[in-house]
Nucleic acid binder design. Sequence first.
RNA 1: GUGGCUAUGGUGUAACGGUUAACACUGGAGCUUGUGGAGCUCUCAAUUCGGGUUCGAUUCCCGAUAGUCACCCCA
Length: 417
Amino acid sequence: MKNTPSKTLGDKQGGIPKKLSTESYKGVRDFFPADMAIEKKIFDIWRGVCEKYGYEEYGASVLEPAELYRAKSGEEIVNEQTYTFIDRGEREVTLRPEMTPTVARMVAARRRELTFPLRWYSIPNLFRYENPQRGRLREHWQLNVDIFGVEGIEADVEIISVAYNIMKAFGAKDEDFCIRINSRHMIQKEIENLLDDKTSYPKAARLLDKKEKMSSEEFQNEWSKISKKPFVINGVMARERTNELQGKLTLLGIKNVMFYPFLMRGFDYYTDIIFEIFDTNQENRRALFGGGRYDNLTSLFGGDKIPAVGFGMGDVTMRDFLETHDLLKNLQIPTSADYYICVVSPAEADAATKIAEKLRAKGSRVAVDFSYKKIGDQIKNADKRGIPEIIVIGEDEAKNGIYKIKNLKTGEERNPE
RNA sequence: GUGGCUAUGGUGUAACGGUUAACACUGGAGCUUGUGGAGCUCUCAAUUCGGGUUCGAUUCCCGAUAGUCACCCCA
């Protein structure tokens, strides 16, 4: 089929290229089988832990009306940081940049028929239009875990516990990461008391978020631009709020938790407890992921508020974490097949297929090599794929149906069960 | 969106402005008519793209593209 791009597209690219590029689009990834195996394993671990806590998986389209994000994030974010376009029906459409508005929409839509508390999780791909760099791409997959309908701190405890256990399921040790907690609501009150003008709170919050990266002089300098009052945060109110949480987590054996009054999180919709999983490794000192309580978001859709707590963790940062802590090797990526059938010549193809079918019927995963290359090459091929056992089908085996299974690790041959 | 750095076969690297663009791994073929991981031989395959300077550009300059780092932003 001939590719005939539209005139405008052709003009823009300076004509039709003779050869198409094999590169993927800027900031997105191809997953070749070796990468996909890791990705799949990460998803499996995510699913496994969530389902242990009784969470149900949901899904939605990557397309959302742009207004869903306008309502919450403001014009600027929608225009500059998302993929937004006009469809053929003049509707403004956005490729979802995050899942929380979507899940809030879904929950709000069925609020009367859903049975609360709701424990939901999803692994959506999300898009953001920005300059890619390490750990920040234009498309990534993110586990979203949320609990709806629980006002009490027990929900915060559970959500953080899920996050903690996911880290443990990847083989992380307590000292590899720490959990920072804060109360958005309480710290906001305290900061507002330090401001001459309450409307400068967003500026102050952004500055505090960056405090760790600056020297104290720099910080004081920046602070003086925002408020004339001296900067003193004792975090008493927030401390009180987080103490209970920390106590309950300790009872669960989660001890790498610390109160961090400068933890802010970017989202405006957080209302109370917020938390962040922080990498303690010197080379990767950064927030891995986080979340918190957002009790007001569903009210955007009218009706009563539904309290909610949740978090999101991305596959890119998870991979980076596993790499820096050398945990990828522990993932136990499964091989593509249990048996590899080497076929000597086309004459034995039907017999080989039959044997493969029989093994598959018994629940084994079987690949058949129809290349008719030399047996040595076929075996090499199986070994390269990490397939543990091979079966050679030649004239004799095809005739009488008797064959041996050879283990490539030990080199031993055995009869099939 | 802004700025810095980078760009050579599939991968990792080499080449004072002048060579037939080199080496290793990988892929393919063979040494070896049905039992592998080794060795040897042969072989496919690259200067990101577009301009400029120059007798001559992989090399220097400009632009585009992509990667990366920082800023911005962080959903």
